[in-house]
Simulated scan of single mutants.
Amino acid sequence: MSGRPQSRPTIYDVARVAGVSPATVSRTFARPRMVSAETAERIRDVALELGYRANPVRRTAPVVRHDVIAVVVADISNPYYGMVTRGVQDVAVRSDQTLQLMDTLESGQRERRALERTRAADGFLLTSPLGSDEAILMTAKSRPVVLINRVIPGLPSVIIDNVGGSRLAVDHLIDLGHREILYVAGPEDSWVGGVRWRTVLDRATERGTTAHRVGHFRATIDGGLGAAPAVLDHPHAGVVTHNDMMAIGLIRGIRLAGGRVPDTMCVVGFDNIAAGAAVAPPLTSVAAPLREMGATAARLLLDLIEGRADGSEQVVLPSTLVVRESTMRHED
């Protein structure tokens, strides 16, 4: 007989099995930047094993079908969202669904208004949402919701292996000779940003070096450009940015200040968008199967709409490091 609770597991069950406090479990899902990557991973594993679902979603009213999927993105100008949306479209076309695309411009307030005002959609795909767990769970009580690049217990989600990808980036920079790792942070409310920063910090410590964070900045080319002065205050650091768009802007900012990448410093991005391979120098980046993310999330959402799923599945897709010319060996 296992020690698994017979009734619906609670936050206290997860805390007991993981050997942490209930508050730490809560922070893991709501504010992961406040929990070490190792602890957060252990808590998520325990939650999955126990079948823990915070605030289980019960929809309050029957839904009239519109054959419309609402896709909410944070910044349509970022090619990352274009690739994810293309994957959603692949599934939608085969399923005779129409897409409704909403751009929140990296604004939690715009995101909230979009969710409140959208009526003619059967469900939501929320890509890197900035809203609180409570607000998103409230939306899920009226219509199915699937998260991309975010985890909330009780809701289905599709993410990449952010921990593994962040560790690859840090290991690569340390192996090139860097003795300081600098993380250039995106939006303060970004769930994935919190996971990546904590992993960068933990992995750098494990490897016997230091890590620092600068920011927060917008997750755009202009955001990366604006980060350049703060980054250049750490001339010997190897740099990991929140995403490729920020890395592209940062490389330009370093060049405008008279430096060169990778001679002045090495830069690693996240997402492996096509533009990263086209900049000078071509960008080393943590790659994810973005189109597959979108397609997987769309299939999960359609399963929810059709009543074929219970709405708690979490899919983690692999990440890899694509090494290009923005990183090179640095000697002390």
Rank of each mutant, 00 (worst) to 15 (best):
P56A: 07
Q89W: 03
A92F: 00
P79D: 02
R119V: 15
A120H: 14
M83P: 05
L99D: 01
R53K: 14
P56Y: 01
I76S: 00
S95W: 04
D122W: 10
R59K: 09
Q97A: 03
L115M: 12
E111L: 07
G87A: 01
L105Q: 07
A61R: 13
F124Y: 11
R113V: 13
M102L: 15
R119C: 10
G123E: 01
R53I: 13
V57P: 10
E49T: 12
E106K: 05
L101E: 02
Q109Y: 15
V88D: 05
V71K: 03
R59N: 06
V46Y: 02
V72C: 06
R59C: 09
V63G: 11
L48P: 00
V68R: 09
N78M: 08
A114K: 01
L48V: 13
F124K: 06
L115V: 10
F124V: 09
D67T: 11
I69E: 01
V71P: 00
G51N: 08
L105K: 12
V91G: 00
P79N: 10
A61G: 08
D45F: 05
T118I: 07
Y81C: 04
R112D: 14
V91F: 12
M102G: 12
E49P: 05
N55K: 10
V64Y: 03
G123I: 00
R110N: 13
T85W: 03
R113L: 15
A47M: 04
T98M: 08
D103M: 07
V63Y: 08
R59D: 07
V84D: 00
V93K: 00
R113F: 14
I69C: 05
D122G: 05
R86V: 01
V73M: 04
D67N: 14
Y80W: 12
S77Y: 11
A47C: 00
L101T: 07
R65I: 01
V71N: 08
L50Y: 04
R117A: 15
R112C: 11
Y80T: 10
V63C: 13
D90R: 06
Y81F: 13
V63T: 13
S107F: 10
T98R: 14
R117G: 12
R112A: 14
R113C: 12
R44V: 06
N78L: 01
M102K: 11
I69F: 03
D96P: 08
R65F: 07
R112K: 14
T85A: 06
E106R: 05
H66S: 11
D122N: 09
G82D: 04
Q109T: 15
Y81S: 00
V71D: 02
A47P: 02
L48D: 14
G51W: 05
S77K: 15
V93W: 01
L105D: 04
T98D: 12
R117Q: 15
Y52D: 05
V72S: 09
A47N: 02
V73R: 03
L115T: 04
D122P: 07
T104G: 07
D75V: 03
A61Q: 14
H66G: 00
L115R: 03
A120F: 15
R44P: 06
Y52G: 02
V73N: 03
L99E: 02
L99G: 01
A121K: 00
R119A: 15
M83F: 10
V88K: 01
L115A: 11
T104C: 10
V71E: 06
